[in-house]
């Protein structure tokens, strides 16, 4: 089953790469004009630039060269800064991953207890409050939450710095990351809580749990019994959510001026810096598809019945 999924994964990656490559080539306007910032340059210089960026070759050759280098980790050169794209990614990716992983951990820390409590107290006040709260967090987009958080916690209360990524590994760094983590984490909590709650309710009504309860197992032990099965849908929703996580990280990065992938992408789109746009979009699509695959594998390990 895993092998099957892996085989299905590769053509999708190739198709997506070709799609992005072609899409960015139908763009009106010549990359050389971006390179020269529109100023008039001699024909020889243009010719030399074309050769340097492979633009004199047919599309198929261009794509093949790009793909060959990309697999080896070389995404070409930025049209704007002339820096290798891989270097730009290396500068921005760590901060983006820090935001993403921190937000993910935080959301799990919040949603797992909430989901279990809501399921155990199904239909009662605490359950309804939790459901209501998730509906509210679901309705607050990350960028609005980020801006409101900056106004409240940076400008009114003066607790946390509003922008930047901070320095070192101490409080300075954490204080800069705290709001991005919370904003992203809270945005992801709702779907996880609801899924875990539904999964738990489903599991708690199964016969083996009722049998465990009848045998006199403590409530904690019963929850442990059910938790593993109830986590399957949560792992699944994490896969679906990964897309929102990437988007959320892009937006959070932009709101808090962290200088991550998000800012790099938006700047590159505005400056028509295609090699950078192409590299980031392909990386996101690959990461997104790979996560979906990984999630399927983890889910089938947690619950073998899921494999078919």
């Amino acid at each position: 089953m895993i092998a099957q999924r892996l085989i299905a994964f590769i053509p999708i990656i190739i198709a997506v790469s070709i799609l992005i490559f072609l899409a960015l080539r139908v763009v009106p306007g010549d990359p050389v004009t971006v390179l020269t910032a529109g100023s008039p340059v001699p024909a020889e210089v243009k010719e030399q630039l074309r050769r340097e960026f492979d633009l004199d070759k047919p599309l198929t050759v261009q794509f093949w060269n790009w793909a060959k280098n990309a697999v080896q980790g070389d995404f070409g050169i930025s049209l704007k800064t002339r820096e290798p794209v891989t270097e730009l990614l290396g500068e921005t990716l760590p901060i983006t991953l820090t935001i993403l992983i921190g937000g993910l951990i935080l959301s799990m820390l919040i949603s797992v207890p909430l989901g279990v409590i809501a399921a155990l107290r199904q239909g009662r006040l605490s359950d309804q409050l939790i459901i209501g709260a998730t509906l509210v967090t679901l309705s607050v987009p990350v960028f609005t939450a980020g801006i409101l958080a900056i106004i409240v916690f940076s400008f009114w209360l003066g607790w946390l710095p509003p922008f930047g990524r901070g320095e070192g590994f101490g409080w300075d760094r954490v204080s800069h990351l705290l709001m991005p983590w919370c904003v992203l984490g809270l945005a992801m909590t709702a779907a996880q809580t609801n899924t875990l709650r539904a999964g738990m309710i489903d599991v708690l009504n199964r016969e083996y749990i009722l049998a465990a309860e009848a045998r006199g197992l403590s409530p904690i032990a019963v929850i442990r019994h059910g938790f593993r099965t109830a986590m399957v849908p949560v792992v699944n929703i994490l896969g679906v959510q990964f897309g929102y996580m990437i988007v959320g990280t892009v937006l959070v990065d932009f709101v808090f001026g962290m200088g991550g992938i998000g800012q790099l992408l938006v700047d590159a789109v505005n400056q028509r810096d295609y090699p950078v746009v192409q590299a980031i979009l392909v990386c996101i699509a690959v990461a997104f598809t790979a996560t979906t695959l990984l999630v399927d594998i983890v889910a089938s390990r947690l619950d073998p019945r899921y494999a078919d």
Partner: peptide
């Protein structure tokens, strides 16, 4: 359809703006 689904929605929006 699967290929289209391999983009998060907002990222597809960004791609269309790039084009």
């Amino acid at each position: 359809g699967d290929i289209l689904l391999s983009f998060p929605a907002l990222i597809m929006g960004v791609l269309f703006v790039a084009i």
